[in-house]
């Protein structure tokens, strides 16, 4: 009898968190694409060089980070996939969200007269099982306002 109740609770939690998790994820992806199209003016490069060498006044370290948690459904799904192998798509979208959010925040942390972000680096780490942190950092280059 107790076994049935536990199974019902587990299935209920999976269904509930599937709904809340996918709602949160869809909302976040919509939010990301809206903000990305607004912030597209700043070019970000991975190169160790500054593209526009002339007329720049100063550089600054800019950092952006985000910690994105998974939900119960994703962890159950990932655990199941771990048995059979293959792509864990539930975690792929999570990492994608964390990285895009980190890059956006890095761009937003740069001041208005920023002309580019050079030598950008992205790092990812797992804080807790199913909880990921992405950090994006780079050198913001500011144009000299007098020129």
């Amino acid at each position: 009898m107790l076994g049935y109740i536990e199974i019902i609770f587990a299935v209920g939690a999976i269904v509930l968190t599937y709904l809340t998790g996918s709602f949160v994820e869809k909302r976040h992806f919509r939010n990301l694409s809206r903000r990305e199209s607004a912030a597209r003016a700043i070019p970000v490069s991975i190169n160790d060089e500054i593209l526009a060498e002339h007329g720049l006044a100063e550089t600054e370290l800019v950092v952006g980070s985000a910690v994105i948690g998974s939900d119960y459904f994703k962890r159950a799904f990932a655990g199941l996939k771990g048995l059979f192998g293959g792509n864990i798509s539930a975690y792929e979208s999570l990492l994608d969200r964390a990285r895009r959010e980190a890059i956006l925040r890095m761009k937003e942390n740069a001041r208005d007269n920023c002309i580019e972000i050079a030598c950008c680096r992205i790092a990812t780490s797992s804080i807790r099982p199913g909880m990921f942190e992405a950090v994006a950092y780079g050198t913001a280059v500011y144009q000299n306002p007098r020129i």
């Binding site: 985000a66 998974s70 939900d71 119960y72």
Partner: peptide
Amino acid sequence: AGIKNFFGGEIGSYTDLLE
């Protein structure tokens, strides 16, 4: 954070802490 990690979403307190 544990509750947030059950339902899904960004863990704002962890982001602030690491920042």
